[in-house]
Design a protein around this nucleic acid. Sequence first.
DNA 1: TTATATTAGTTGCATAACTAACTATATGTC
DNA 2: GACATATAGTTAGTTATGCAACTAATATAA
Lengths: 151, 151
Amino acid sequence: MSNNQFKRGELYSVINGMATTAVARRLQKNFRNAGLDITIEQWSVLYHLWKEDGLSQLELGNRTFRDKASTTRLIDNLEKQELVIRVASKDDRRINLVYLTDIAKPLQQITYELANQTMNEALLNINKEEIEIVKNVFQRVYDNLMSKDLS
Amino acid sequence: MSNNQFKRGELYSVINGMATTAVARRLQKNFRNAGLDITIEQWSVLYHLWKEDGLSQLELGNRTFRDKASTTRLIDNLEKQELVIRVASKDDRRINLVYLTDIAKPLQQITYELANQTMNEALLNINKEEIEIVKNVFQRVYDNLMSKDLS
DNA sequence: TTATATTAGTTGCATAACTAACTATATGTC
DNA sequence: GACATATAGTTAGTTATGCAACTAATATAA
């Protein structure tokens, strides 16, 4: 109906393949070149812990858009690298609270710088208004699909 | 510099986690509910073959933003499911041309419908101008990062 | 024409994703 | 208290991703 009709999932293939892959690879490359041995997926978890330490695995999954199985393994790997530790909650022993270690803490500064630098490269010729529209569109797309999640 | 500065890779986490994941999951779910046993990654390859059959693996990789190793394995799996076949090029025997089978051909119609339906859900309240801006921004982001690929 | 470099594709290794089935703890109801 | 249900996290199985090292075929240069 109307002129929102979109033909052949074209936007999906544009968005999902192109730009996000390119940004992800560049960011990963910038981490590697800086001698940082973490994946961008691991970084996405650390990112939320730097903002608020001691989140549960489920909450980390919500904030990083992952299911709990994926979150478990990501944290397994982060724990192997001694970047986080799991601490069982005293109130509810089903819950693992995830805390940053002293190894992870100093990585915040440099990874933020690398992320900023990467996004500045990516957004070189893109103005504020356009960025706001993209963010806004993606928020609405997410809301459209997640509000009625048909499992 | 200037007001393109972007703080803390925020846009990256917005874009990469949220909307693309939500759309991908919904599309995969819609495939599954329709009894289609293909992944959206496999679909992204078939999508380009329906537009132009008999592409080389490398060309398919370019069009779907994958490296050649990923393309190899995706086509391994498509071949296992008898959706495509590899045919060595007569001109250059290094090249595999990838062709749709009779099993894959009738899937075009239904998967296009499901992709359209999914995107229409996703883009329900988003107008043409916004969509054009998103596509345009993503194209420029891709160009920004890929034009000077530092390997 | 022989040696060298380039190109297309494959394989090994590690990480990550999703689904479904599972364990252990907590909550709610009788 | 006992039984059913819900919740947080783990595990198994399959697919996908990226990098690096490899093979085989082609192109280039001497």
